[in-house]
Computed example of a mutant assay.
Amino acid sequence: MKNQEPIALVSGSDDAYTLPLAVTIASAIKSLSADRRLDVYILDGGISDASKRRLLASWEDPRVSVQWIPVSRESFERFPVSHHINAATYMRLAIAEYLPASVQRAIYLDADMLVRQDLGLLWDEPQGDAALLAVQDYAAPFIDASTCLTNFEQAQPYLAAVHPIANFRELGLPADAPYFNGGMLVIDVKAWRERNLAKHLFECLEEHREHVLWWDQYALNVVLAGSWRSLDLRWNQGAHLYVYPSGEHSPFDSSTHRAIVEDPWIVHFCSPDKPWNYFCRHPYTDAFRKQVRQTDWHGWKPERPDEFMRRWWGHHYKPARERWKTQVRRIKENFRSRNRAA
């Protein structure tokens, strides 16, 4: 279908994140069906001209256009950051203000992803009246996981947060509402403009600063509560999936857990353990680095860290220790179950 509308794809970074940005967009192009087109919009938080040339070389494809949108990071620097999250992460909150007026709908991807499925399928998802389509967060799946998970006792030790919005009761949010990850979003840009959501999102961060967890994701889940629809979990496989030792300990049923482990459609490296670091245990590290070799960074190698032997020991010892601890937990759980049955 040659007359299909192009997919509006948005991502962004500063100059420090250009290698993973190259992989994110290149993998989306590689997975795209032949009859689809991509209009790529990059929120430019300080990407150098040299890096832009390398990115364009990495994304060269007749189906793809690229537009750079300069974004000043100064307006975001008053918001909290961490060692692997900087002010650029807040750019997505103002996405509707930055995109050209002609763009009415867009897919947003964080710049630390590996796309393994045709984004045309995601684009074809009906938006309906939802301002946003997103994927439930693997690390904190509900506003109050303690009331929603039937296996809460088993899952709790591995959840990143039981209450990702600590003041949900004061805000009037239902305890059983799902909580989404902000790394992959299908946005009704027109609705965001009409509702002036950028203003409301930043006001939320200011007003509830003491409760903010996970940066801009707090504001997205508060302001868009009840205005978003959940997508197939495979569209945003969060790194926290691998924290759960088994499907029984995860927030998902066994068939869903198996599907997102075996066939993620987008892999999201949303933890400090990044595949461009020398030591990375993520199962898709090799796939990420293979994609790097197909970009203009094809000669890249991860930098050998300081205190190499200490880090090497931790890299190999920690997984073995975690496996041992998991086995001990299972033995204790089985023992308790037998005692209750008796």
Rank of each mutant, 00 (worst) to 15 (best):
G120W: 04
D44W: 07
T89N: 10
L241W: 10
L233R: 06
L185F: 12
V212G: 08
A160E: 06
W228R: 05
Q154R: 15
S11C: 15
Y41L: 06
F288A: 04
P80A: 15
P174I: 10
W313R: 11
M113F: 00
L122N: 04
L231G: 01
N167E: 11
M1N: 11
S146V: 02
Y242V: 01
R105M: 07
V115Y: 03
F288D: 07
F180Y: 04
A166L: 03
D137N: 14
H240Q: 14
Y41I: 04
A106P: 10
L213W: 06
P251E: 03
S72V: 12
P283G: 06
F79Q: 11
R336V: 14
A341M: 11
H257C: 00
L231S: 02
Q237M: 05
L55W: 04
P275F: 09
G183K: 12
I187P: 12
L241V: 09
A259P: 01
R209F: 10
A28L: 04
R73Q: 13
F79P: 14
A28Y: 01
A259C: 03
C148P: 00
D44E: 04
S51E: 07
D118K: 05
Q217R: 07
V103A: 04
A134Y: 01
P275K: 06
A16T: 03
L149I: 02
V186Q: 08
T295H: 12
R289C: 00
G183M: 12
S72H: 14
L201W: 12
N277E: 08
I331G: 01
L43Y: 04
G299P: 04
W235S: 10
L231A: 05
R258I: 05
R234G: 07
R321E: 08
P178H: 03
A111M: 08
M113S: 02
T24C: 09
D286P: 03
I165P: 00
S337D: 15
A139T: 02
V261H: 05
N236F: 00
R229L: 01
S13H: 05
G172T: 06
L213D: 07
A160H: 07
A26T: 11
W214T: 13
I85T: 02
I187H: 10
N277G: 03
E74F: 06
R105D: 08
Y138F: 15
F279M: 02
I29R: 10
Y17C: 05
T24Q: 04
P245C: 13
H316Q: 02
A139C: 14
E307A: 13
W297G: 06
I25Q: 10
P6E: 13
I29Y: 05
H84R: 15
N334H: 14
D273L: 06
L173F: 04
A94Y: 02
I331D: 00
K30G: 01
H240D: 14
L114E: 02
N221S: 10
V162L: 13
D137C: 06
P305I: 13
E207W: 13
R36V: 01
S227Q: 15
